[in-house]
């Protein structure tokens, strides 16, 4: 039914979104490439000119860079592992016959709606604070020394906070997927004498594969750019212990005010993100019915 003119109208209707997104993507990208080859320091504007690849080599030679990559991977991998394992367990539990499943869902999903700086600040002050935090009070109550969470275990603490924010998302998606699993299949398996573990292994888990893939894909998109939680709690410290790649770029740009180096870091981040995106998009295509 699509005529020549309706196709033209259709293109016209898509155009604003595509053009705007293209500009939003390409202009900053070109500028970033340009800056990454320049000497450009806001604190010493008299020095400028071409830097060649020096901004890039500075990044690669900085010990913070490899730490930053490591921390970024640790953050994404750690949060994914925690949210998926516990998400599956909690979804299985809520899927059982229980009273008040509606209110349960609302309680479980709540952390997802808390804005990252608030979530981070709640955990930092009300819970992890070494003197006044609730966890410190608990430690004192048990007669042990309070743990300096953000000072001694900054990365683990940040991963924990972010996992708390994303666990609800994973749980809700896995729960939705579980509820579409036919109970007849499970009952048939039970009557054939399959143990509950093998029922989970051979029926439930394969059924959840698609949902788990989607959780990994969507969460990775958001987790790669985690910023607010680190900004609010550790500021990347102590030292550089909890600096991720995005946070390192932020520090170069707005604290060290070295635009050239920050831009080089940005380009490296874009290339790494594209490698991840390539694999994600390929498997995502199979799971999204566009």
């Amino acid at each position: 039914m699509s005529t020549q003119s309706s196709r033209a109208t259709a293109r016209l209707m898509v155009a604003p979104s595509v053009v705007l997104l293209f500009i939003w993507m390409i202009v900053p990208l070109i500028l970033t490439v340009w800056f990454s080859f320049r000497i450009y320091r806001l604190l010493s504007p008299e020095r400028n000119g071409w830097a060649g690849f020096r901004n890039y080599t500075w990044f690669f030679n900085s010990p913070d860079f490899w730490l930053g990559i490591n921390n970024t991977l640790l953050l994404v991998g750690g949060v994914l592992a925690i949210t998926i394992v516990f998400g599956v367990l909690i979804a299985l539990l809520i899927d059982q016959p229980v009273w008040g499943q509606g209110p349960l869902r609302i309680l479980v999903i709540s952390p997802f709606f808390i804005m990252p700086p608030v979530a981070a600040s709640i955990w930092e002050n009300l819970f992890m604070h070494p003197q006044n935090g609730l966890l410190a009070a608990g430690a004192v109550g048990m007669g042990i020394k309070p743990i300096l969470f953000l000072e001694s275990y900054p990365m683990a603490s940040v991963i924990f906070i972010v996992a708390w924010e994303w666990l609800p998302f994973a749980t809700l998606i896995l729960l939705t997927a579980l509820q579409s699993l036919s109970s007849e299949q499970l009952e048939a398996a039970e009557m054939d004498g399959a143990s509950s573990l093998s029922r989970f292994r051979y029926i439930t888990l394969p059924h959840l594969t698609r949902a788990i893939t989607v959780v990994i894909l969507i969460q990775t998109i958001f987790l790669l750019g985690i910023f607010g939680e680190i900004f609010t709690t550790t500021q990347g410290g102590p030292g550089s212990a909890s600096t991720t790649l995005p946070y390192m770029i932020y520090k170069q740009a707005l604290i060290a005010k070295d635009i050239g180096r920050a831009a080089a870091g940005g380009i490296i981040a874009v290339i790494l993100a594209n490698i991840v995106a390539f694999f994600l998009m390929r498997s995502m295509g199979k799971h999204l019915d566009a």
Binding site: G225, Y250, A277
Partner: peptide, 24 residues
């Protein structure tokens, strides 16, 4: 392809393009 491309723009780390955004 267009839809996938749109989604892929979200994969670009915000921090990477912070400087040009800031200056613009």
């Amino acid at each position: 392809d267009l839809l996938m491309w749109m989604l892929s723009t979200k994969m670009m780390p915000s921090a990477a393009v912070l400087i040009p955004m800031y200056l613009i």
